[in-house]
């Protein structure tokens, strides 16, 4: 029977058969080429680009002003000092900023699905994920990263922490894992836009909302919220878990000490899940075309 040729739910090859490594390399190369085109497109409007970057910086700076104001009224927040909170704020901000810079514009995918320009991505010899991730790549997002990095750097000079080798190493590991977790959330959100073209808002509540959550010490939130952020949508691993180790704090959920080092594994796991969601979304698009 001819139908057996294309079972609808079956996995279709996303990459060239010559191997996944080649596909990843092609994807990265395509990503950089397309991102470069977007950068040049924005540089055409130089003034607008400078203003947007400054605006991005200023907006996030005001955001930290809110944290500073709270500490104008109290010395500690949930047992955390201003410097410690700044450490959380900065690490969460850098992680989100990196993810936002790399794949953040994927939330425009729904628009491409709606207006049909998604099809133009599917006929190019570059993995669609790389093209979608690089779509509308915006350097102005460096504004957020810069601001968060400044806060993070400032807090690190003032923290009373023993900077052992483990603690020093844990900082970049935390930032990269955090970026990975946020990137996974962005990707999952984009994948859902293949079905519901306006799913971006839900995803925003996990990315920007998750950022707002992990900027503050976990101790100020209800236990259930912290549990949810640990076991359901593992945003706690963006910075809380590793930062608690660096700051020498007890785990709010009394989890064993090794959990503090789990961020990279959690990041890998959620990225793998996001990859599956993306594949499922793309497969659905290719069987329905809308």
């Amino acid at each position: 029977m001819a139908d057996a040729e294309y079972p609808v739910g079956r996995r279709t090859a996303l990459f060239e058969p010559r191997g996944r490594t080649a596909a990843v390399r092609d994807g990265l190369r395509g990503y950089l080429l397309i991102a470069g085109m977007w950068v040049r497109s924005t540089v055409v409007y130089r003034t607008s680009f400078v203003l947007m970057t400054l605006g991005n910086f200023a907006m996030t700076a005001l955001d930290f002003a809110a944290v500073a104001i709270i500490f104008g009224h109290t010395r500690v927040l949930g047992g955390f000092t201003l410097t410690e909170t700044a450490f959380l704020y900065g690490s969460s901000g850098v992680a989100l900023g990196l993810a936002d810079l790399a794949v953040g514009s994927m939330d425009g995918l729904g628009r491409r699905v709606r207006d049909g320009t998604m099809d133009t991505l599917l006929v190019r010899p570059v993995p669609v994920f790389a093209q979608a991730a690089a779509d509308r790549f915006a350097l102005r997002r460096l504004g957020r990263i810069t601001q968060a990095a400044v806060v993070l750097g400032w807090s690190m000079t003032r923290l009373h922490v023993a900077w052992t080798a483990v603690n020093v190493l844990l900082v970049p590991v935390m930032l990269l894992s955090g970026a990975g977790i946020f990137a996974a959330v962005f990707t999952t959100g984009a994948a859902f836009q293949f079905w519901a073209t306006d799913a971006a808002e839900v995803q925003n509540s996990f990315t920007y909302g998750g950022n707002a959550l992990t900027q503050y010490p976990p101790t100020v939130f209800a236990k259930d919220l912290v549990r949810g952020a640990t076991f359901v949508v593992p945003l706690a691993f963006v910075n809380w878990m590793p930062a608690l180790h660096i700051l020498g704090r007890d785990n709010p959920l009394r989890l064993p000490g090794w959990v503090d080092f789990c961020s990279p594994l959690v990041a890998l796991a959620v990225c793998a899940l996001a990859g599956l969601a993306w594949r499922a979304g793309l497969r659905s698009y290719r069987s329905t075309g809308s």
């Binding site: 139908d3 294309y6 279709t12």
Partner: peptide
């Protein structure tokens, strides 16, 4: 062009 997967044939 490979954008859509046929349902049969």
């Amino acid at each position: 062009t490979g954008i859509l997967v046929p349902s049969g044939g």
